[in-house]
Amino acid sequence: MGQLTGPSVTPVREPRTDVDVRPDLPWDVIVWDDPVNLMSYVVFVFRRVFSYPEEVARKLMLEVHRQGKALVASEPREQAELYVAQLHGYGLHATMQRSS
């Protein structure tokens, strides 16, 4: 997004340092508890979106259920965006944030 491809003859003097654009820094994908989504449905979504085995999907669902949220993935920004978009599509309350 917003990637400008200027004339290649223009020498790039120095990279901007005020904005962190390193694409490989991970973003955490968090799923938050909500009172409507069924536990079985949340397990199904985790299995489907992340291809997690049953035990992993179930453990994460229980973490959401009991602790109010769970870290479900930590990925480069683009992949994290994909995950959050998919999770929203399934109706889960998911957010992403820079990994701390």
């Binding site: 536990m39 079985s40 299995r47």
Partner: peptide, 25 residues
């Protein structure tokens, strides 16, 4: 539907360790 589409997902209901379900669950 889940029981037909993804049986492992509904096996969560067999867990004895489950605490009281949240409202709506």
């Amino acid at each position: 539907l889940l029981a037909l589409i993804d049986p492992p997902a509904v096996r969560v209901h067999d867990l004895e360790e489950l605490d009281a379900p949240a409202s709506g669950d």
